[in-house]
Simulated assay, not measured.
Amino acid sequence: MMAKQQQIIIKKIKKVQGGGHHGGAWKVAYADFVTAMMAFFLLLWLISVSDKATLQGVAQYFTPTESISDKAGLGFDGGADANIEKGTGAPNAASSSLIYGSPSKGHRVDSARMPSNMSDIERDHFISIMNSIQQSSELKSFADNIQIDITNEGLRIQIMDSDNRPMFKPNTADLQPYMEKIITIIAKMVSTQPNYISISGHTASVKAGSDTGIDFWNISADRANEVRKFMTQKLIDKGQVVKIIGLSDREPFDPKDPFGIKNIRVGITLLNEASITAYQKSVPTKIGS
């Protein structure tokens, strides 16, 4: 009798790779999606409850820029940083208060790209002043005549000619009435800051063959000095001004158009610590008149 043949059974096991109907990877993706949607709706809610000035400040913060808006004015909710002790006017400095946001056009300042010779205190100080200036309604009608930026010397406020509105009577150093109004408002701001100031005068170039008979070196210096005299009569301490410069047409506002009227201007610069002399650093904080 033959032995009973043994039956061989082969068992196949089906391996299920990760994912499939019961995998967990989709849960991670879904969780990320839900988190992103929550963040998005939170952002929408924050935008809906924030005031306009805050939103404009946030927009300005994330905008890569090189200088500051040319819409300037005066509106003091802040002022100089109380930590700044050197320079004239320090005892009268207001406490620091950054005012974020303002309607802006033209150039703006990106604090990350400010000149490296400024300390953090000076940088914050100038940002505070600039934001304060932007809030004013008093100078809105003169927005085309005012440009503010930061140079290696400090915070520069430039007052320039525009169409049908020269800041000085033609070919003279006589201030126009609206120029006096602008300077008065700016001088009130400057007088409260712990900074010495420099004033520069500029003219536009004259096309070849136009013999005006005017010495533009003299008139640019005379205009800067006229602004100094107007400011120091009643508005600021006369010791606060430490430099008067006449630059003729050698530093045009618009190098591409050296004959343009905006090149005719006066610059008022609040000087930073690195731009004043050792003598000026050694004088008393408040210089007597």
Rank of each mutant, 00 (worst) to 15 (best):
I264T: 11
L247N: 06
T63L: 12
F253A: 14
G19D: 08
F142W: 06
L235N: 06
R123P: 06
M189Y: 09
K281G: 15
E122K: 09
G18I: 00
I47R: 15
Q193T: 01
S162V: 09
I183A: 02
W217Q: 12
T184K: 15
S69Y: 01
N145A: 09
P91V: 04
D110A: 12
T232V: 11
S48F: 00
I148M: 04
A224V: 09
M179T: 15
Q7F: 00
S116L: 14
S205P: 11
A31F: 08
S96I: 06
A72S: 07
K256Q: 10
Y178A: 09
G267A: 11
S220N: 02
L139Y: 03
A93G: 01
A224Y: 03
I99H: 14
S141G: 13
G246W: 04
G87N: 08
Q240F: 02
K27H: 07
P115G: 09
S275R: 10
L74G: 07
T203L: 15
T151I: 01
Q193V: 01
S248D: 13
I276A: 12
D215P: 06
S275M: 05
I268F: 03
K262I: 08
G79I: 04
H125P: 05
S67W: 13
E138I: 05
S220R: 06
L55T: 15
I159W: 03
I68G: 09
I268C: 08
A31E: 12
D215W: 04
V227I: 15
E251C: 14
D81R: 05
S220Q: 01
K181E: 01
A39F: 10
I47D: 06
E122N: 14
S141N: 14
V190Q: 02
I236V: 00
V49I: 07
K243N: 12
N218K: 07
K234L: 02
P170H: 06
I150M: 06
K15T: 01
A94P: 02
K52Y: 00
P194Y: 03
K188F: 02
E180F: 04
Y178P: 00
V241R: 08
A25C: 15
V283N: 13
S289C: 13
W45S: 07
N131Y: 09
D77P: 14
N92E: 09
G75V: 11
G73K: 05
R123N: 02
G260F: 01
G213Q: 11
F40E: 10
A221E: 00
K11D: 13
M38Y: 06
K229P: 10
I219A: 00
T232W: 07
F62K: 05
S132E: 02
T151M: 04
I47T: 11
I9V: 11
L44V: 09
A204V: 05
K4A: 12
R113H: 07
A36L: 07
K262M: 06
D149E: 05
I127M: 14
I264L: 07
L235H: 00
K262Y: 09
